[in-house]
Nucleic acid binder design. Structure first.
Length: 575
RNA sequence: GCGGAUGUAGCCCAACUGGAUAGAGCGUUUGGCUACGAACCAAAAGGCUCCAGGUUCGAGUCCUGGCACCCGCACCA
């Protein structure tokens, strides 16, 4: 907690040995609580003070006047360790949770706007397992940023424009599929996926097919009515399935402004590039040179005049700045596209958009799949990627077997099984740092023991179960705290748990600082572990400390529920 | 070739951004349900943190040079 650090710094300043600011900078958190809650390593002071670190720590320990709420200060091997009084920590932490409820640990609104571009799948293809990463990292980040005080614009930059549609159109017509309204209306994304795979197979034997697809897209871009009609049908079919899955996963967006949305905003960008003499011809292409940044040129237009990915991203960035006036704009996209974003950001810089430095690519490692004995990037195009809906279905089925064994009479068990399954997949994605590559392995993904979503959810369920047995449906913390005797919450198990609950605010800020949901995922594991231990060691119902302990159960449930929510997991109450 | 990411226990990962004895989970071995939910708890074993140098009171973390693996590099998005 900040106030403790402030007070420790002041107390140290009062000894006359150093300035408050300097002291504040030195304060850190020891690796485990046996060394206290705060510590000052005295090694760096040795030179200035001309004393051994051990002596410095001992002298300071003798001189410093302990601020209120701290119970002990001790010098160990050159470290000056401060201990918080357990009863004091319990009181201050639990009172704050009682006052703030689910929003305990949230930062006050800071008036800043952050745009988060995530998920952004390509239309015409089914969601593959690897789409889960951007979707769930972005979903979680958008919740975490909100908790940190930002106004968040969640943007799904659908890949609904580009040569890919040329491919679909070419293949659709080549197979002589009917193009009446009724048939087009009933198109499914599954069929489109098959068309894609067929195209990529056919184009291997017929190199001319790629050109045909490019020509088809150019025709579409030029406004051909028939092609437009096909495109609309392809888009609608994909969107329908997409919404079904987002719904299932509890993911939502504020804007579905796909690439096609920026079609009519591109000419202005091209004009500006020309006016500023930034666009040059190279190999029959329009490009912006980026030599001065040690980057390859950014491709703006193909030789036939149609636009590219980067062009539409430029238009999108300018539109977003104008429309939302963001302070930060995040792109949650895999690491493989780092170069693309670097190029786009630098073109913006050359265009004189000073806000280019507020643009951040939030990269993450790729999902690798075993193809013919080698780990490689799964590709929806060639059909080597596992489909997200298949993975979700398999997870649900597996969890359902678990439920049938442990709790067969559970109501709504199909729904709960799916929620646990989706949460497990999500947690698996969020618990590690973003940049690690993930090797997709069915057995590993379908294992639900140990450091997993179900482990965290189970802790939450057990807390809810105790509350239910005590006749509490929904915690009313403000009323219940009157009966708490904080001295009864100072044993090791209770203290460890409370000490963790007290860190919620700093964990939220830590997750935002690194754009890392894993900070909160690891935190959720720590709370779950401490909660399991607490209810295992400290009997709640029927014990002399029942009221105090029951309050801690409720406070933990509230914190855990919200942390699960910030991660985008379902905080279920029974399983 | 150039650029980027990663490398920590048999496997998969942490380590609060340079601090104390490098921590969890899976797997292995063992103990605990007539028990507020055992999807749990407890214990044991398991480490030259890829290699070689450097920076300093102190390096898994920073710098240099290698090695391994993955990704990207002109008309896909």
């Amino acid at each position: 907690m900040n106030s403790f650090e402030q007070e420790i710094a002041e107390a140290l300043a009062a000894t006359g040995s150093f300035e408050k600011e300097a002291a504040l900078k030195l304060i850190s958190v020891p690796p485990d609580t046996s060394h206290g809650n705060f510590t000052i390593p005295c090694f760096s002071l040795a030179k200035v003070m001309r004393k051994a670190p051990k002596m410095i720590a001992e002298d300071l320990a003798a001189q410093v006047k302990l601020p209120a709420g701290l119970s002990k200060v001790e010098a160990v091997n050159g470290y000056l360790n401060f201990f918080i009084d357990r009863g004091f920590l319990a009181k201050s932490t639990l009172e704050e949770i009682a006052a703030k409820g689910l929003e305990y640990g949230y930062a006050a609104p800071n008036g800043k706007v952050v745009c988060i571009d995530f998920s952004s799948p390509n239309i015409g293809k089914e969601l593959a397992f690897h789409h889960l990463r951007s979707t769930m990292i972005g979903n979680s980040l958008s919740r975490i940023y909100k908790a940190a005080g930002y106004k968040v614009e969640r943007i799904n930059h659908l890949g609904d424009w580009g040569t890919a549609f040329g491919k679909l159109i070419v293949m659709y017509l080549r197979e002589n599929r009917p193009t009446d309204d009724a048939t087009l209306d009933s198109l499914t994304v599954k069929e489109l996926n098959i068309l894609y795979a067929a195209f990529s197979k056919a184009s291997k034997e017929e190199p001319g097919l790629e050109d045909e697809a490019r020509a088809a897209f150019t025709k579409l871009e030029q406004g051909d009515e028939f092609y437009r009609k096909l495109w609309t049908a392809f888009r609608a079919a994909t969107l329908k399935e997409l919404m079904r899955i987002y719904d299932m996963m509890g993911v939502g967006f504020d804007h579905y402004t796909g690439e096609s949305f920026f079609e009519d905003k591109i000419p202005a960008i091209l004009d500006e590039l020309r006016e500023k003499n930034l666009m040059v011809k190279s190999q029959d292409l329009d490009v912006v040179m980026l030599d001065e940044f040690d980057l390859n040129p950014c491709l703006i237009r193909k030789s036939d005049g149609s636009t590219l990915y980067a062009t539409r991203d430029l238009a999108a960035a300018c539109y977003r700045k104008k429309e939302y006036n963001f302070d930060k704009c995040l792109y949650v996209v895999d690491l493989g596209q780092a170069l693309h974003f670097k190029q786009v950001f630098h073109v913006l810089k050359k265009m004189g958009r000073e806000w280019y430095k507020d643009m951040y690519h939030i990269p993450f490692g790729v999902i690798l799949q075993l193809v013919d004995g080698k780990w490689e990037k799964g590709k929806t195009r060639t059909g080597t990627a596992s489909l997200l809906r298949d993975v979700i279905e398999a997870a649900q089925k597996k969890i359902l077997e678990f439920i049938d064994e442990k709790n067969p009479n559970l109501e709504n068990k199909e729904l709960i099984a799916r929620q646990i399954g989706i949460s497990a997949l999500t947690f698996n994605d969020l618990k590690n740092s973003r940049l690690k590559d993930v090797r997709f392995d069915w057995d590993a993904v379908m294992s639900f023991e140990g450091d997993t979503g179900p482990y965290v959810q189970n802790a939450h369920v057990r807390l809810c179960s105790i509350m239910r047995k005590a006749g509490i449906e929904r915690a009313n913390l403000a009323a219940a705290i009157k009966d708490v005797n904080f001295a009864e919450l100072t044993d090791d198990a209770a203290y460890s748990l409370i000490n963790l609950l007290a860190k919620k605010g700093e964990k939220i800020l830590g997750a935002v600082a690194g754009d890392e949901p894993s900070v909160l995922a690891q935190y959720a594991l720590e709370i779950a572990e401490a909660a399991h231990k607490f209810i295992h060691e400290d009997r709640v119902l029927g014990s002399p400390e029942e009221k105090s302990r029951l309050f801690l159960v409720q406070a933990t449930q509230i914190v855990l529920e919200n942390v699960l929510d910030l991660l985008g997991l379902f905080p279920i109450r029974q399983m």
